[in-house]
């Protein structure tokens, strides 16, 4: 599974992990943050040390790709390492049991992370519609930029009669996007298994998609340098199922049906339950110059 790289690098590599004297809060390991003025330099240095530390470029619709620097400085999708409670509301008025069931699946991620979801009777951070439009979610902190009268997540047609497996597969997948996780099937290792001509023919036949749409939806991999996460995992909840009919070896990309162990582990590293702190900020005159 892959996530928003620059902020995660900051989270995971910015301190020695030991709280200073007088620290309040949870006992044990805490994660230290650099002052804001050093984030860009630290990201550049981390990238020089290891190119896989480079900021994430998230593929968007055709023509809407975001440059790495813009992502680093303006549109990071990461919620940050602190404990976070996201409020949830519904744009329609589903039954109480359906609302509770959906929220319980959003909270499946809370098993290993510091992010949790709570219903509110006001407009929530996460606004769910069950209306037409398919299944989707805006990515990470982008949901805070969605106008409050619009949904941030769509779960078309969800109802209490649907099997539990669909709640696990779909609701947990969309919740992963809300946490900032991209699509796993866009990993190079999985895209390289797809025969382009077979994919064009398949999606033209089944969906009417032109080659540009297939390229954008299926055939454009995330760059290795943009990825921080587990090795490509076709069983990740963030991986779509793709048929053997379009792969070179004839074997399907299985796709995840639930959050798996690898997903939980990675999400827990990105959003650790131990709270990160910024304290004892030193003056800029004491910043250490990075080697060039």
């Amino acid at each position: 599974m892959a996530g928003p790289r620059d902020e995660m690098s900051r989270n995971l590599h910015s301190g020695n992990g030991h709280a200073g004297p007088g620290t309040s809060g949870p006992q044990g390991c805490e994660i230290k943050l650099l002052p804001d003025r050093l984030h860009e330099d630290a990201a550049a240095f981390a990238t020089r040390v290891n190119p896989v530390n480079a900021p994430l470029r998230i593929p968007m619709a055709a023509g809407l790709s975001i440059e790495p620097q813009a992502l680093t400085m303006v549109t990071s999708k990461y919620w940050g390492p602190a404990q976070r409670r996201l409020t949830v509301s519904f744009t329609e008025s589903p039954s109480e049991d359906l609302r509770a069931r959906i929220i319980s699946h959003l909270n499946a991620w809370a098993k290993s992370t510091s992010v949790s979801f709570f219903e509110t009777d006001k407009a929530g951070d996460v606004r769910i519609s069950l209306g037409q439009g398919g299944y989707y979610s805006y990515l990470g902190t982008d949901i805070k930029l969605v106008p409050p009268n619009r949904q941030t997540m769509n779960l078309e047609g969800f109802h209490m009669g649907m099997p539990e497996s669909e709640f696990r597969r779909v609701v947990r997948h969309e919740a992963g996007h809300t946490l900032g996780f991209a699509h796993e099937h866009m990993r190079k290792e999985l895209v390289s298994r797809i025969d382009r001509e077979k994919a064009y023919a398949y999606f033209l036949r089944t969906q009417g998609w032109d080659p540009d749409t297939v390229n954008q939806q299926v055939l454009t991999p995330l760059d290795d340098a943009d990825i921080m996460g587990t090795p490509a995992d076709q069983d990740s909840i963030m991986c779509y199922q793709l048929p053997g009919e379009i792969t070179s070896d004839g074997l399907p990309i299985r796709g995840g049906v639930d959050i798996n162990k690898s997903d939980f582990t990675f999400a827990g590293k990105v959003y650790p339950k131990a709270q990160a702190v910024l304290e004892h900020e030193w003056p800029p005159s004491e910043d250490v110059l990075l080697p060039t």
Partner: peptide
């Protein structure tokens, strides 16, 4: 978006 940027959700085409 409220900051003037165009936001695109992650999901299949829907229109």
């Amino acid at each position: 978006g409220t900051d003037g940027t165009v936001l695109t959700p992650l999901g299949a085409p829907n229109t």
